[in-house]
Nucleic acid binder design. Structure first.
Lengths: 168, 168
DNA sequence: GGGCGAATGATACAATATAACTTTGGGCCT
DNA sequence: AGGCCCAAAGTTATATTGTATCATTCGCCC
């Protein structure tokens, strides 16, 4: 059911001098990877879940659950809050999306299937959130926790401010 | 109006071998510091705001806005959600409390009046949240942002897991 | 063809947060 | 004293985010 999409409504991250971001390809890659991963793990990426994943991936801006619901309801009349939250919970459990706690919103994971910690740079001007993987930062988090004799289970790192394009 | 409190309902952080945490003194210190700071800044720590600050400080567990409301309403019949949210907003603006984004809850700031970044260790077993100040971690955050040409305005660092006492 | 379990449907509601307008009360000016 | 201003708090209503619970569907396996 991978019908062609209309061109993406939101451009992705791009800095001056870089070439335009092909967001359709970006989504396609993410969906393809999700299918592969779910297949390997013998979990079901149902049409509903895949549709929700597509909606989350429509932009690089974190999207609220009720925005997802509105979008989903266009083609899926039965959609209700639990429909969306269940799909989001599944996608989070499988590491296909992240929740941005400081925004109560959700973002496609660019590193699905790869062991990684999630750190986010959230621009207050353009609304995009960039997922970064910074081993030094991650080590610093672990070191800080260890110093406090704390056993880490989950790390939430969200840096808000201005991205290079919006500041520059 | 600093009437004596009943003994604190929640003990604070304490490790095996440490002496008991005198939470009443802990609150007193926080309130006294808050008064001094607000005085210096010529902002009003009104009785209502101070009461909310006391309620947040009753434990070292992050407390939800509606928990604050319930507690406040015991002695302040007119209390409504905006009453609480306005007080919390003020206290956050003055750096007297922090919001824990991953819990939608609020915690007294142990470093009020001192320039610092906030990092939290949140125990899922006992519910306490410890505020730590780790310059290396902070530097790592700044470095990661700089590498991505990102201008930092706010940092949210919340590590969830098990504290030393609950894990040990 | 019956039973099981995962996924989804459907209804209701809980928890968190804000908008917008009104009232109060203290400081200050004349 | 009287009037004005402004910050704080009161008041009512509503928006936003998230869950609980039970019913239904559907594929799979025996």
């Amino acid at each position: 059911m991978a019908e062609p999409r209309k061109s993406a409504q939101q451009a992705g991250p791009r800095r001056a001098g870089e070439k335009p971001h092909d967001h359709d390809a970006c989504i396609d890659t993410a969906i393809a990877r999700a299918r592969t991963l779910c297949d390997e793990r013998a979990v079901q990426l149902t049409p509903l879940r895949e549709k929700v994943l597509q909606i989350v991936w429509r932009s690089h801006k974190p999207v609220g659950a009720y925005q997802v619901l509105d979008e989903l309801a266009r083609t899926h009349k039965a959609a209700r809050p639990p429909t969306v939250y269940r799909a989001l919970d599944f996608l989070i459990a499988e590491g296909l999306i992240h929740k941005i706690e400081s925004l109560n919103a959700y973002l496609g994971c660019g590193e699905a299937g790869v062991a990684h910690t999630s750190q986010f740079l959230i621009c207050r001007a353009c609304g995009t959130a960039e997922e970064i993987v910074d081993p030094k930062l991650d080590q610093a988090l672990d070191a800080a926790a260890k110093r406090a004799r704390f056993t880490v289970e989950r790390k939430v790192v969200e840096i808000a401010g201005l991205c290079g394009r919006c500041a520059g």
